[in-house]
Design a protein around this nucleic acid. Structure first.
Lengths: 238, 238
DNA sequence: CGCTCGGTTGATGCACATCAAAGGCTGTGG
DNA sequence: CCACAGCCTTTGATGTGCATCAACCGAGCG
């Protein structure tokens, strides 16, 4: 498992870090240790891959920091992003119960990121046996499904509405629930927006350049700041 | 609960019917009875609604026969279909664990259909407590999520590919796993295909009329029969 | 210093939307 | 029993939003 450029480390001080996540809110220290038995911390650099589409799925992962994108290449060689995983999110849990599972998507880091890599057996033998934990994971699935449904509802809207809607969705994903600053919780390129919506980079750029010049949003180092939320909200429901 | 045109009935002879479903495969008779306590059978006619988007979600449902579509209206008044539920599928389970849940979609029957309507408490108190059942429901969620992801991957493909892909997906949903007859397991109008893909009826019709004239498919009473599966498979991956 | 990556702009074309009109079929009410 | 409304399907004419292709710029990096 120890790969070249990836840092990997036994679970030393991360346990306390895990307690922050709603996932483990109601668990005691010893339970938490049991849920992470055999876990390894991995660090990834920008664009480094965690799981490869089609590879045997022997592990699942818990995001500690940064962000990961879940995507797949279609026959024409274009990527389609299906989900963004943030700290506290679980990756790969969905397919763990299958017999001989295979990753349905490629997962790679957006900016420097960290996860705990956990063996599949642990999911089946520990996670699924714990009633509360199962409910929390269930909750994550349902959020993810509702996110996809939300995006599907925008299919027939003009591109500007769809981008606005996506940006607002992403913004609400962060753990900063103080809505004083409207900043997306992770770096997001125009290409990634395009790949999420199934359109071209150029189209996204044309819309967002317009927004920048109107002062609706502002991008620095791929981090998008929303200056006029009201304008985006209005666009989103058009 | 007893509504006007809906038939509703206590659980008389349906218990044995339930045993057919993979959901309850590994459960004994008495467990099964416990899982359906307080359940009521409801019959729906074509296009009759089971749940209304935005209504308080006090119940979930288990599809016995026929088919149901889960959809929502966007601001412009166009419907978007997010899922088709077939016999053995569970509807509404996703949101039962939420506090004061509200149905995120409208659910209505496609042709004459039947469900067992179950109270929310039953889900929380019985279904979620049973380890095996939780795993099965988890399996249903994961299928549904993967279905949505699959559809998203086709976003940038030409319309013909997307329709082909959808039809093949629907075809594989039926319980008839003998692939001697390639017939969709439920009636599906062109409009419903359009609403699933986020395009217009006319576009769908133009594509499928072409297919009919080439003898790829054939439609009688909204039931689609695939005459040349190979042709569709080829189109789907274009 | 050449490389890749992200962002940007403009010219052109096409796939699909839109609008319009019409026929069949079903259920419903006078 | 007929009239009517709603739904599903179909076809054609016309328009347009976004894709495509091409080119260029600046920043970071080995």
């Amino acid at each position: 498992m120890a790969k070249n450029s990836k840092g990997s480390d036994a679970l030393s001080g991360v346990l306390c870090e895990l307690r922050r996540f709603p996932l483990f809110e109601s668990h005691k220290q010893d339970e938490l240790e049991r849920f992470c038995l055999g876990g390894v911390v991995q660090v990834h650099r920008h664009r480094e891959a965690l799981f490869q589409h089609g590879a045997q799925a022997n592990h699942f992962a818990l995001v500690l920091g940064g962000a990961y994108k879940l995507y797949r290449m279609n026959p024409k060689g274009e990527d389609t992003i299906v989900y963004f995983a943030l700290p506290g999110d679980v990756i790969g849990a969905l397919i763990m119960p299958q017999t001989n599972p295979v990753y349905p998507v490629t997962v790679s880091a957006m900016g420097p990121s960290r996860i705990v890599l956990l063996p599949r057996d642990l999911y089946l033998k520990e996670w699924m046996q714990n009633e509360d934990l199962v409910q929390r994971v269930h909750g994550l699935f349902s959020e993810r499904l509702l996110t996809l449904q939300e995006q599907k509802l925008m299919l027939r809207a003009p591109l500007a509405s769809r981008i606005a809607s996506l940006i607002l969705q992403m913004d609400s994903m962060g753990d900063s629930f103080d809505k004083n600053e409207w900043v997306l919780p992770f770096p997001l390129t125009r290409k990634e927006i395009a790949d999420t919506l199934g359109v071209t980079v150029e189209s996204v750029i044309r819309v967002m350049s317009d927004w920048s010049s109107h002062g609706y949003v502002q991008t620095t180092d791929q981090v998008i700041r929303i200056l006029q939320p009201a304008a985006l909200v209005k666009l989103a429901q058009a």
